[in-house]
């Protein structure tokens, strides 16, 4: 049937976790599809990315190097990826189900008259077609979909797959890129980075610690940040906390924010309104700390503490620190 491509999600060659997860998935799919797992790299910093994609088993890499990919918003990548797919007809192409990945996938699909499935949480092959699982209606329903014809374009949700290393000698194929004027219409004038701190992004993190209205005051997010840093986690926030201006919207988890499924989700001072649950209920393990024993969040926890977060969180942070230190 053919190769399985992974469009590498990266920043200047620093690949994201979902890239390793996609490569892991692609190895399995390629075996069944009778092809190779292939990394498709657009941008700068290939030498950095190369190490990582070989570690996760890419047999081949199609490399398009140009600064146009970062000077202009997504369109150059659409152009290059669409052209490659049309010429080489892989069995399928995996994109990261993050805003930029979905944008590229959907424009490529529209350009080539193909279908695209987003937010995939599992992919298997039935016959010669993919069977793609994703959540609907805030995680309450699981839907299995397929695409009527290939090449099959699928956006893979971060953390849906567990990455496994499998070192491979990657065979490089550097391609010429000439970007059309049409693809240079959206110019990135400036990149403004507001937040310092090396915490992972909410929609990529394996662990998320989220704070809500129960924190009572924006400065109390320090407690959430302290616990998050101890666990190497991202900081999330409920809609109530974001609407109150306590934390930026990029951190909002829920129906009108990010939909996440990390390995571990810790909800602190969050009651668990349906809008919030819709964004996190597919997390592998869920923990809640809330003083209200009746809070709906306790309906979906693996472990819950009914108690005062101002008492529990600092002690928990300290306890984890102690145990990490060798206990």
């Amino acid at each position: 049937m053919g190769d399985v491509w992974v469009v590498v999600d990266h920043e200047n060659g620093e690949t994201s976790k979902v890239t390793s997860q996609m490569l892991t998935a692609a190895r399995g799919l390629a075996k069944e599809a009778g092809g190779d797992p292939v990394a498709v790299f657009c941008g700068q910093g290939w030498e950095t990315a190369k190490e990582r994609v070989s570690k996760f088993g890419a047999a081949k890499a199609i490399v398009a190097e140009s600064e146009d990919f970062s000077n202009y918003q997504t369109a150059p990548q659409v152009e290059v990826v669409a052209k490659l797919i049309e010429e080489r007809q892989p069995w399928g192409v995996l994109f990261a189900s993050v805003p930029s990945g979905k944008e590229v996938a959907t424009r490529v699909a529209a350009r080539l008259g193909l279908g695209v499935l987003a937010d995939a949480t599992n992919i298997t092959i039935e016959g010669d077609k993919p069977k793609v699982e994703h959540s609907a209606f805030g995680g309450a329903t699981i839907v299995q979909k397929t695409l009527k014809g290939g090449p099959f374009l699928i956006c893979v949700k971060p953390n849906a797959f567990v990455s496994e290393e499998a070192a491979a000698e990657v065979q490089e194929d550097k391609v010429e890129t000439s970007i059309s004027e049409d693809a240079k219409r959206v110019v990135v004038k400036e990149r403004v980075e507001k937040e310092a701190g090396g915490r992972p992004a909410v929609d990529q993190a394996a662990i998320i610690v989220s704070g809500g209205r129960g924190l009572q005051d924006p400065k109390n997010f320090e407690l959430i940040e302290g616990l998050a840093d101890q666990l190497g986690a991202a900081v999330g926030a409920s809609r109530a906390a974001v609407d109150a201006g306590w934390y930026p919207h990029a951190h909002q988890v829920g129906q009108t924010g990010k939909t996440v499924s990390p390995q571990l989700y810790i909800a602190v001072g969050i009651s668990g309104a349906i809008q919030h649950r819709a964004g996190m209920q597919t997390s592998k393990t869920i923990i809640a700390i809330n003083k209200d024993a009746e809070a709906p969040i306790f309906q979906l926890v693996d472990f819950g503490i009914v108690g005062d977060l101002f008492d529990v969180v600092p002690k928990l942070t300290e306890e984890i620190g102690k145990r990490k230190g060798g206990g």
Binding site: S135, A136, G139, A140, T141, I142, V143, Q144, Q281, T282, I286, A293, F298, Q299, L300, V301, D302, F303, G304, I305, V306, G307, D308, D311, V312
Partner: peptide
């Protein structure tokens, strides 16, 4: 196909 997600949670809730 589609169906309801069944996630078994441990629901181990302790009072502090």
């Amino acid at each position: 196909e589609f169906g309801a997600r069944s996630t078994e949670r441990q629901k181990n809730v302790v009072d502090n």
